[in-house]
């Protein structure tokens, strides 16, 4: 009798847990407020028509800051958000009670993971987010096609990263959050509105352009 009560209680709490808006945020990739879809054509303000194949990026050192300024770590280890892996499109609060305040995270992979060899989990180099010829993780990877891109098969490729000195492409994101917040949106339109694929179809090395574009990508995040 006691045991079955316990079981019911467990099931109940489990059920409750799943329903609560407070266990995390869903991560939604958008283009001009519309959910990002494979093979769908999008038009940027700079006049480029494009389709997306890959969108992947890392967020690390995720923390919740309450209205008094107290911060609580949600998770430190870099999480790979991958458009192709629905299970990755979720930011788990890891039992942190998130109410009114801010959500803050690093966009990219912090220095220590770029200089100490290979790491596992979401940082495993099999995931295609590690540069081979120059040590370091790719923080943001976006690939697709556009007739404007003067490249082979009209492919555009952005592999943004870099941790050293002036090439440091790490940025911080800080967004207001409240108890009812359900999603973290990443609208890619501002990124592609800010560039022209005719002149900038590929960035695949760390450097000043990668730093600038990482900052542009940073402005794509919202908590509605």
């Amino acid at each position: 009798m006691n045991l079955s009560w316990l079981l019911i209680l467990c099931l109940f709490s489990q059920f409750n847990w799943g329903q609560s808006a407070q266990d995390g945020l869903s991560i939604q990739l958008l283009f001009e407020n519309q959910p990002l879809e494979k093979e769908k054509q999008y038009i940027t303000q700079s006049g480029d028509t494009l389709t997306f194949d890959k969108v992947k990026f890392y967020i690390s050192n995720v923390e919740y800051i309450d209205t008094k300024g107290n911060s609580t770590t949600i998770h430190e280890y870099p999480q790979l958000i991958d458009w192709d892996k629905p299970e990755s499109l979720k930011l788990d609060f890891n039992s942190v009670a998130v109410k009114e305040g801010w959500l803050q995270f690093t966009l990219g992979v912090p220095l220590e993971y770029n200089t100490n060899g290979a790491f596992d989990g979401d940082l495993d180099p099999v995931l295609g987010m590690y540069w081979a010829w120059q040590s370091g993780y790719i923080f943001i990877k976006m690939e697709g096609h556009s007739p404007s891109a003067p490249t082979l098969k009209h492919k555009f490729q952005f592999h943004l990263g870099g941790y050293a000195g002036a090439m440091n492409a790490l940025t911080q994101v800080k967004l207001p959050i409240h108890e009812q917040s359900k999603s973290l949106t990443v609208d890619l339109a501002p990124f592609f509105n800010a560039i022209q694929l005719q002149t900038t179809p590929t960035i695949m090395v760390p450097g000043s352009q990668a730093v600038t574009l990482s900052q542009t990508f940073n402005s794509c995040f919202r908590i509605p």
Binding site: N114, T115, N116, G117, A118, P125, V126, Y130, A132, W133, Q134, S135, G136
Partner: peptide, 29 residues
């Protein structure tokens, strides 16, 4: 490591020859 010092740790050195198209040309996965 490497002639240009592009690799900063021995543990990620092997990744370069294993995946380089003109070397072992393998998909790590």
């Amino acid at each position: 490591f490497m002639w240009d010092g592009g690799i900063n740790h021995l543990d990620v050195q092997s990744l370069a020859p294993i995946t380089h198209p003109a070397e072992m040309d393998a998909d790590l996965e």
